[in-house]
Design a protein around this nucleic acid. Structure first.
Lengths: 336, 336
DNA sequence: CTGAAAGCGCTTACAG
DNA sequence: CTGAAAGCGCTTACAG
């Protein structure tokens, strides 16, 4: 496809008066004489040479590229996660390929295969399908929120504690009958612990509670199926002009937002009639106040930790199998 | 770095009993006999072969990878844009490298250089620095919202119309003294037309108006410098308990959000005392109602158009130099 | 139509 | 320490 006339390692070798092997060595920080090193570096600068990552990757089996699989970038939490992952990788001279799976198993597998074919050095993933069998032991991979088969490194927020804090907060502010509403995958992941923490706290306090589960659809969309189901459920919870619950904990801020808008439309006052706590801790447009009261995930810390772990795996160093990062309650005006 | 034992084109050639050239041909949809094609396809399936993009790229000067440069993924607008760009590219079997520039010129240039070195087939960029000189005529590139030097393909929303609609809406709902508040780059871009449209509409209506400009900081951050400056400005606009303006148009929803929160803290009622219209048309957490009244950009259409244009450029087909996509007003409760 | 061979830009043993 | 050479997995003229 046309000569693009790129400066190659040959050009700098000729310019510096050394062999390509020597140039390669200074490129890779392998010892050469100071004189040669200087000559080469000068030529590199003079010619504006940049190594061709793909040629290097072809031979060296490494591309300095990492892929991240997330459901989408519509959910602000994933967008923030990817943002900070890119930032951390960029500092280590790694590039980031973004793969939106839309929670489709085929897409997740396709991206995992890409990684297996040495197209990327490693993989960070937030997946919700059962694609364990497609992994391979020698593939550097860090999973967020989800347990793959044993030995796959996993990073998550303290979901159990988050659920517990949410329930405790609702109880402590006077709720008598609370509900945990969730949607998303049922795959063996850390996020399921949000419900466990919630239930344990309710049991301990001896309060009335229940849980309600919605579909696998993880990309909540305006006007989507899950929104519709959730709204129907909320309407059913209205008996004789009274809402069944005085406190709601949701599996994400997005789901919480949908619920808040529906309850308001139904004429309920938040937080006086019903209190709501979400999960994620997102700010309005990411710059304003907290959109709703929530359990805040340490998203930047999760991103940095994932990248650090992945780098260790790529370098064949040992890493902790599971890293749990602390969460905190944030007040967004939907609790009393 | 260790044998990863990947299936190569040689393996399928041997398995199918043909030469690697023949395999390559079926891979690239070049005609071979039906019998051979079938044999090869069977071997590919049987062995689970996938082409190595980098080896292919090395020879063919094409990597099926595109890079996108955006300031960050914290701004929901950019996150959505990247989301839809990835979606469109994925359908054409292209991969997407995400490059956050944080509006730093060095980073923008580094990413442009990467593209020039054939690491990617093309570039989609949302940049705000003056990096024209680093482009090259044979580099497929689509710019969003910004004019590079002549002949660089640009896609944008109808910024002029957006500004005009905003002013007209404010005037029509009774405002007597309105202001356009913006932040971000002053580089020759389409977004500057938001102010022009606003001003023209004000002039035409003969209404009092003014404009206020803040720093180059494009990544608005909670607690950041721009937020501070904006808040100081708003306080100064409060004279004897009365706010100077009854209508505000902002250069983005994010900036609008910051202003709304500050005005509320100052005890003003929105939209009764002051009406606000932003730009972007973002929904609460992307799933809820519009966060504020706004000029909605056709973000998905912008993404798809950019990808289509880029594909044409990669294939050396002609494209329109400038594509303007329509905007619309959306009511988010901050207007009357 | 098909195969053999050269070559894309690197890295890496291997001699020297 | 350095250079010559092989080879990473492909594609692409070139003969046949």
């Amino acid at each position: 496809m046309g000569v693009r006339n790129v400066i190659t390692i040959k050009d700098v070798a000729k310019d510096a008066g050394v062999s390509v092997g020597t140039v390669s060595k200074v490129l890779n920080n392998i010892y050469v004489t100071v004189a040669n090193k200087e000559k080469v570096e000068q030529s590199i600068k003079g010619l504006g040479y940049q190594v061709n990552t793909y040629a290097r990757g072809l031979k060296a089996q490494r591309t300095n590229t990492v892929a991240i699989i997330v459901p989408d970038l519509i959910s602000p939490f994933f967008a923030l996660l990817v943002n900070y992952v890119e930032q951390a990788l960029s500092e280590m001279n790694y590039k980031l390929l973004i793969c939106n799976s839309y929670c489709k198993k085929e897409k997740e597998i396709a991206y995992i295969n890409m990684a297996k074919q040495n197209k990327v050095d490693g993989l960070i993933c937030v997946t919700y399908s059962n694609s364990d069998e497609y992994l391979r032991d020698d593939l550097p991979i860090v999973s967020i929120d989800r347990h793959f088969k044993p030995k796959v490194c996993c990073v998550a927020s303290d979901n159990y504690r988050g659920g517990k804090i949410a329930a405790e907060k609702l109880i402590e502010t006077g709720c008598k009958n609370i509900v945990f509403i969730r949607n998303g995958s049922n795959i063996n992941g850390e996020t399921l612990k949000r419900g466990k923490g919630f239930i344990d706290a309710c049991e301990k306090a001896g309060i009335d509670y229940c849980t309600k589960e919605f579909g696998e659809e993880t990309t909540l969309e305006k006007g989507g199926e899950t929104e519709h189901k959730v709204c129907c459920f909320l309407e059913q919870c209205m008996k004789n002009g009274k809402f069944l619950y005085d406190g709601i904990f949701t599996s994400s801020d997005s789901l919480g937002q949908i619920i808040i808008e529906k309850l308001k439309k139904m004429g309920l006052n938040i937080p006086m009639d019903v209190q709501i706590i979400g999960y994620d801790g997102l700010r309005a447009l990411n710059v304003g106040a907290y959109q709703l009261s929530s359990i805040k995930q340490p998203v930047k810390d999760m991103a940095v930790t994932s990248v650090n772990h992945l780098m260790k795996l790529i370098n064949k160093e040992p890493v902790d199998e599971l890293t749990i990062l602390p969460v905190s309650f944030v007040d967004g005006g939907t609790t009393r």
